[in-house]
Design a binder for these strands. Sequence first.
DNA 1: GCGTTACATATTTTT
DNA 2: TATGTAACGC
Length: 726
Amino acid sequence: MNDLLANLNPQQQAAVSAPDGQILVLAGPGSGKTRVLTQRAAFLIRERQVDPYRLLAVTFTNKAARAMQERLQHSLGSTLDGLWLGTFHSICARILRREADVMPFTRDFVIMDADDQKSLVKMALKEFNIDDKIFPPASLHSAISNAKNNLTQAKDFVAGNYREEIVRRVFERYEQMLRTSNALDFDDLLLYAVRLLQENDAVREKYARRFYHVLVDEFQDTNMAQYELLQLLSSHYQNIFVVGDEDQSIYRWRGADYRNVLRFQKDYPAHETFLLEQNYRSTQNVLDAARAVIDRNTQRTPKSLFSERGRGEKIILFEAMDDHAEAMFAVETTRTMMESKKAGGGEIAIMYRTNAQSRLLEEAFFQSRMPYRLVGAQRFYGRQEVKDMIAYLRTVQNPADEVSLLRVINLPPRGIGDKTLEDLRNIADNAQLSMGSVLLDLGNKQGESQFWHTFSGRAAAALAGFGALLVNWRNLNQNILLPELFEHILKDTNYQEYIMDASDVGYSRWENVQELLRMAYEYSNSGLVEFLENLALVSDQDTLPEKSDTPTLLTLHAAKGLEFKVVFIVGLDEGLLPHRRSMDDPEEMAEERRLFYVGITRAKDHLYLVRADQRRNYGSFDYSTPSRFLEDIPEKVLLRAGVQYHRRLTPSLQSAIPRWTSVPEKKSSLRESARYSAGMHVHHTVLGSGIVIQSKLQGDDEIVTVAFDKAGLKKLSATIAKLEIL
DNA sequence: GCGTTACATATTTTT
DNA sequence: TATGTAACGC
């Protein structure tokens, strides 16, 4: 019967075939977590004859949802008709659109993204004349978001001090603006869904009786609203299967609370816990380091990860002279590994704490003339031109959406300035209508509109002109396919002309617009509502090229869920990792530790931990000290290299540490006679001064790689080139 | 409405 | 340091 269980270890099998009820699977990194979740779904469908229709599977990312869908299809080969599988947000959006009748918005509500949310907060601040220096919009928004994640609505928000009173007022106005715009923000999707299920017995029963089994991925990252949602949806049958790892919770700042794992255990005394401790990814050395780091966190379920892959290579701890040398080391070592076929480019990743750190790495790649892939940063959906077009589409779907309307109403410039907008705003307010409704009225009736004469002649004409466009697009939307509507908008607005200036920036902008248009073609069969929802709920992460043969640069956050044969973690200095902003809060410090843990456990075979003794901060050069996390890694799994000042270590310890070295993987051929070592400052009569990146012995010669200040990177033979050690 | 300049600001960003 | 944004002047 059980080819479903065939390739699973006993722990995994037990979890997959666990009885009904509440099941908690705590799965270490690389222990086959996703596999267990997928097989559990397959098992329920095939072995327990659960109709897919009665199954709900929830993930955090679209990527994870898609992966699960594909695997499930693969292992069942049958149809998954009726199965609900999606992200928390998409599932909530689905429920809310279905039940919109009883909600304070209509079925075709739009979803506000992070930028829109920020705009709304700014608009509220402006209205209230609040100084955005004293109350930064970002901090107010995060206060609002936190409240919502904890299921507090504006009307329930109680202010305990002056600051909170400001928050309360902005919150209220923000909420009002969302309502009049017929819009929900990300947090609302969860919040309203939970409220609906809590307050409306009929609706709750409908869903709870449908979902015989609920399955959840990345459970440690759930916030309070998500936890409640799961409880409500599984409230009838109480069959809930959650998979997670407290040690990989790195989204606390977004409301994620790994203590939901503890709450689960408390809320469901009859639950069963399964621990997945066998790691199929990393060598034992990597796991030992990871464990040493994470063991210092409390409030977690102790796990002892083990691997049958053997000890493996030691972990290289490279201390560079400065941040340039750090980048150079990572890139040069990458090159060496690729050239010697130790690893393909696609199997190598360089990870860092902050996006800003990618710059030096990119420069180093550029200098070495090597291609690389940068994850994150350039966000397609964040591009001005993409946002413009989305705003047009959103205005067509929902003219009440003020953020979008204001974005496009004078774009390209069509003579609707601030003064006109102010009038429009007042007239709309007086008539108790949205600005969009007034525009539509003007567009429809032109001079006959009751509003026409409330504006000056020019303004009325300009507004009516745009209103007419909007009316037309809305009609088109009823009658033609989405991509055609899109093309009409482009044509009517001369948008191409507007963004296509002579520069190549203009051209790439136009390309982005066309890419969006291509995506619209894929929605020919569904429509505008679906297209917009997807744009809001699908991130750039999902559009990343899956496979590549070039090394990857990415933040530690972006690395979660991935694995690479070779991993570099750079910037292992106090202030960077752990980040300086986490210093005064133990919870945040614990999260920095988990972040490091996540990074370490991405490595299959080779792990390089890299830091720099001196790095450029904003303006100035600063000395830095090694990350405190490095101290926890047992010396026996480490191989140290690079310059070592060890200001933090006692003299006795210093002598215990081998002082050396050169390129680690060549250590067998290393001889005492190596004159140069990484980090040394050297001078060459022709090439000038520079820093030694690496040095390896080759026969009787020594090949030294030097990064020259002016001449760039050179490989030199020590017997021929005269290199003076400074 | 647009381009310039001065100025503040600099963590992570699943949806 | 460098980057993005706000305010200013044309």
